[in-house]
Computed example of a mutant assay.
Amino acid sequence: MPHNPLHNQHMPLTSLKSGTCFEPVADVEGLIVQIVNVYFVGRADNPHDWVLIDAGMPDSQKQIVRAAETRYGKQARPRAIILTHGHFDHVGSAVELAEHWDVPVYAHREEMPFLTGERHYPYPEPQVEGGLVARLSRFFPSQPIELRPRIETLPEDGSVPAMPGWRWIHTPGHTPGHVSFFREADRAMIVGDAFVTVRQDELYEVLTQHQELNGPPRYFTADWDAARDSVRRLAALDPSVAMTGHGLPMDGEALGTGLKTLADDFDLLARPRGTRH
């Protein structure tokens, strides 16, 4: 098995809801892995036609495999793993899962250097405006992982492998190659960290998963102008439900009103003061 530099880099942050599954729409199930969500996209009654969105925290592969087998049956195997971006909490177990299932991994071309061992992400900003999690971010891994030869770029036409009806949308800012996913038929949206529904830099909110619509995690976002433009691009699609990388799914009036407010007042509500970016 290829070496995963994130192996044994266990983060002691764990939500009280870790291990909980939720089903915001009939063919998507989310799993909370410590402080981050992964998503199984595909109906539970079709065990041979599903994909995994994101790969959770380091050393969480057994938990993810167990949840997949609970949903799809023993020997469940996705058609692909698809990444919103390459931060440690979204790719922590990607190497092990891709090897275990023998499947390809897809990401945006601008995210490739961070997934092929070539570039580090910018170091977190522990001094950024925010709470204890922001201050703890100095200990978060920023090194790239190596997913070759399994890593492939998402199709340039916006289609998503093994996810018919969905399209990927380039939503940079949090990282250069961050992507979100949108399905026109029901306006369902999977957004990674383009925006989140928990105050990710505050420890109490992370532990309890208190729902509150926010911009991307402040300590790890590199380009705030691009992040603002990405939120506005997603808001313009008027999603019916947003499934985020951190926090519980949001829908209805809370999502519609909250996302419009975030898009309109992003610089005031989301952009931190005193950031080096």
Rank of each mutant, 00 (worst) to 15 (best):
I169W: 04
G19T: 12
P5Y: 02
H210K: 14
R109T: 12
H90L: 15
W166A: 01
P249E: 03
S93Y: 01
L6Q: 09
E118R: 14
P2H: 12
P149D: 09
F140I: 02
H10W: 10
M189L: 15
I64P: 05
M250K: 03
E69V: 02
R77Y: 02
T20I: 03
E118C: 00
I169E: 07
A263L: 10
Q75D: 15
E212K: 11
W168R: 07
A98P: 06
V231E: 06
V33Q: 02
D193Q: 14
F220D: 14
H100G: 02
R79L: 11
G192A: 01
A235E: 14
P144G: 11
I151P: 04
L213Y: 07
V41G: 02
K62N: 10
G73V: 11
T171A: 12
N46M: 08
L132K: 14
G86Y: 08
G215I: 03
P149N: 09
W224N: 09
S142L: 01
Q34F: 06
L269D: 03
A80Q: 08
R43S: 15
L234T: 06
D59H: 03
N214L: 03
R199Q: 12
G92H: 05
Y204Q: 04
N37D: 05
R43H: 15
R135T: 00
A242H: 03
G56C: 03
E99H: 14
I53Q: 06
R271S: 03
R167Y: 02
H10C: 03
R150T: 00
I82C: 09
L268F: 05
